[in-house]
Computed example of a mutant assay.
Amino acid sequence: MTKTATLLAAALACSAFGSSPSPAQSQTEPQQRELKATVTSYWTTTKTGAQRDKKIYGRFSLHKDAGRLINQMNFICPKSRRTYAHLTIYLDDMIALGAPYKPFRGEIEGQFAIDRNSAITLAGESIDTELFFDRTPATVNEIDRVLSAKSVQFRVGDTRVAYDTNAKFEELMRELLAESAGATGFFDTEAMLADCRKFRGESTR
């Protein structure tokens, strides 16, 4: 077995990727499922994501059946200070698992439960299966709480996704991302935002 295959098997053993029923509902209501994914809490840059006009930081999970890396969300840091940085959440794989999200283009409201504690709502935009939330002066505090969270329960419409992590998974994913995705850097959220400010030529204070 190759090193990549060994790391993949070990990381899959301590990760979740699938669905579970929501708490009991009345018999007249359809049962809703909450899709779950174990993701990295750190943000990763890769060789394939390197671009001159923007820097891309990703959080990854693993597909239990296909045995492949899934880019669950990105923080996009544009070089131009005239353009807001933003969080992108990708729903392709969750839809394939049965998420009831119907791709469309338009405004959305995303509800985020942070570390099983506080909850916030953010206005965003849906472009097919990709959801965008801008980091503006008005939303910076809320967005940064989402970016920094170890655990995020996300809801848009009837679609519910729970992102969580664990130490063993994160340790194995560092090696796996370096081995198979050409990882060039690993950042906690504070370091990522500082790196983004440096890339944009902004004050690092």
Rank of each mutant, 00 (worst) to 15 (best):
L172G: 06
A194Q: 09
E190Y: 01
N117K: 11
G185D: 05
Q25P: 00
R200F: 00
A5N: 10
I114A: 10
V156M: 15
G182E: 02
T189K: 02
D53R: 06
T83S: 12
A5H: 10
A167C: 00
Q72G: 07
I120Y: 03
N117H: 09
M192W: 08
S26W: 10
E202W: 05
F75I: 02
A149Q: 05
V140T: 15
A113W: 03
I120A: 03
E190T: 12
L122H: 13
R68W: 04
L177Y: 03
A96E: 15
T45V: 09
S19N: 14
I56T: 01
L147P: 00
D134H: 10
S180I: 13
G110Y: 00
I127T: 15
N71H: 03
A85T: 01
D195V: 03
Q51H: 09
T40P: 04
V146P: 09
R116M: 13
C14M: 10
L97M: 15
W43D: 03
E107H: 08
S41D: 10
E109N: 11
A5T: 11
E34I: 14
D164L: 14
S80Y: 08
G98Y: 08
I76V: 14
A16Y: 03
I143P: 02
D134G: 07
E142M: 15
D115V: 06
T136V: 05
F199Y: 06
D158M: 12
N117S: 15
F199M: 00
L147A: 08
Y42R: 13
L131D: 08
L62R: 01
E107A: 14
A149C: 09
S203H: 04
T204L: 15
I95V: 14
L131Q: 08
G185S: 13
F169C: 04
D144W: 01
F60C: 06
T184I: 06
K55W: 00
T38P: 06
A119D: 08
E107D: 11
D93R: 11
K3H: 08
G110P: 05
I114T: 08
M192P: 07
N74T: 04
D115L: 09
G67L: 01
E34F: 06
G110E: 05
L176E: 04
A181K: 14
F104Y: 11
K168S: 14
L177N: 07
V161N: 05
